[in-house]
Write a protein that binds this DNA or RNA. Structure first.
Length: 423
RNA sequence: GGCAGAUUGCCCGAGCGGCCAAUGGGAGCGGACUGUAAAUCCGUCGGCUUUUGCCUUCGAAGGUUCGAAUCCUUCAUCUGCCA
């Protein structure tokens, strides 16, 4: 496989390199041949999310440019947990970690190629840490870590006031040991990650230098934030999960479609595989007619296709067009409507014995979290049945409300839809 | 081990015997304006009812009192100071 010499320029243009070890050295290494690189994911949840996705697409770019990926799933590091500002983590049980390791491994696999000259390799750091004795660990790894330097790290310093356990304090040693191991066993010489990992990653770079006298490379992608600087990736109730069980593909698509104008160009560059010309074209179109949201549409389509596939994306686009078309719901064919609603989630109710009231339906579909909340929503004018505002919370839909004889379209606010299928 | 202080709703933080479901800010939710954007403004923001009603909440368990988030006891956790 030939090496793409423009890789680093492209990464930098996209804004994917927030920090790196010596750029000239990195550039030289990437030009020389297929670099073996690694990116790690800790099983801190049953699914990866938007932040991890940035590492995934970056890893994909490197592989497409001819370099050789090693994907590390943190079977051991996930048992420890890296320190974060919000405070000490609660340790997950070993069974939980093991299960999440497996789920994440399966989740990452489709994004990389495991065939060809630069085939990807999946590794689990539990394989080389489980058997290390405490004495060996302290002598071989710990000796290379000056505590004064460890204390100076931002995460640690921020935690000194509130307290940090020795467990989390030691996390950097484990992750650094991974780099050393992969370097020794597989010739890995580049690590990438998120910018919050920079400290842990440089720890590994230094360990390789101190232990083996070898120079290895690293770079990290930026932290993606909203236009106002706050954390991204939060949708209703949770993170932007990649697992369709945890976040429906429809909601995933809607997230990207609703990205702020100011962030569209940045996100297109960071996350999509669209080329520079195409992205600049979209940015120009967006600048001229922002209300058409050409950038958001492209972004949502690219990301949803990447994560959930082209077929699912097409269905979601059709559903979005139907639901947000603003027209009379009765104009839609029952098939189209049913297909659209199935993307948003459907509640099936029996018609025998009469239908539930609008308040009950709001609760049962999950649009409202309690009956009080549902009543409040109706009172605030935020409840709609078949795109018509509902005034009376106790209103009970009748037979003539059923679209195509079976469907009710329940909406809360501007963009939360649920279908009700009456059988 | 001793002394002192802390623990409040999703988060941060007031309250320090009744007027407390509990001030304020943030997040969330709804409305208006728009473009299924941002900003702004308004409303809302424990549960059940739908109302000048009831229930469950202020680290946990007991107690004092007509009445406690507010006082007392014990326990747990955290922080600081002294050993």
């Amino acid at each position: 496989m030939s090496i793409d010499p423009t890789l680093l320029d492209d990464l930098e243009w996209r804004g994917l390199v927030a920090h790196s070890t010596d750029r000239d050295a990195l550039r030289a290494a990437l030009a020389e041949g297929s670099v073996r690189y690694y990116v790690g994911f800790d099983p801190t949840a049953p699914s990866l999310h938007m932040g991890n996705l940035l590492q995934i697409v970056t890893a994909m770019r490197l592989q497409r440019a001819g370099h050789t990926p090693f994907v590390l799933v943190g079977g051991s590091t996930g048992m420890i947990g890296d320190p974060r500002d919000s405070g000490e983590r609660t340790l997950n049980t070993l069974e939980t970690v093991a299960e999440w390791v497996e789920r994440i491994r399966r989740q990452v696999e489709p994004f990389l190629s495991f065939e060809g000259q630069n085939a990807a390799t999946m590794v689990n750091n539990l394989d080389w840490t489980a058997g290390v004795s405490a004495i060996d660990f302290l002598r071989d790894i710990g000796k290379h870590f000056p505590v004064n330097r460890m204390l100076a790290r931002d995460v640690v310093r921020n935690r000194l006031e509130d307290g940090i356990s020795y467990t989390e304090f030691s996390y950097i040693l484990l992750q650094s040991m991974d780099y050393l191991h992969l370097h020794r066993e597989h010739g890995v010489s580049l690590q990438l990650g998120g910018s919050d990992q920079w400290g842990n990653i440089t720890g590994g770079v230094e360990l390789v230098r101190r232990a083996d006298g070898e120079r290895v490379h690293a770079f990290v992608t930026p932290l993606v934030t909203r236009a106002d600087g706050t954390k991204y990736g939060k949708t209703e109730g949770g993170a932007l999960w990649l697992d369709p069980e945890m976040l429906s593909p429809y909601a995933f698509y809607q997230f990207w479609l609703n990205v702020e104008d100011e962030k569209v160009g940045e996100l297109l560059r960071l996350f999509t595989f669209l080329d520079r010309a195409r992205i600049e074209e979209l940015e120009a179109a967006h600048a001229e007619k922002p209300f058409l949201r050409a950038g958001q549409k492209a972004l949502a389509e690219e990301m949803t296709t990447l994560v959930h596939g082209a077929d699912e994306t097409a269905r979601i686009q059709a559903a979005s067009a139907a639901l947000f078309g603003g027209g009379d719901m009765g104009e839609l064919s029952p098939d189209t409507l049913g297909a659209a609603l199935r993307e948003t989630g459907v509640l099936r109710v029996e018609s025998a014995g009469g239908l539930p009231s609008v308040v009950d339906l709001l609760v049962e579909t999950g649009l409202a979290k309690s009956r009080g909340d549902a009543r409040r929503t109706v009172g605030e004018g935020g409840a709609y049945l078949n795109n018509v505002r509902v005034e009376d919370p106790d209103r009970v839909p009748g037979a003539d409300d059923l679209l195509g004889g079976t469907w009710l379209v329940l909406r809360k606010g501007k963009k939360s839809f649920k279908g009700v299928e009456v059988v």
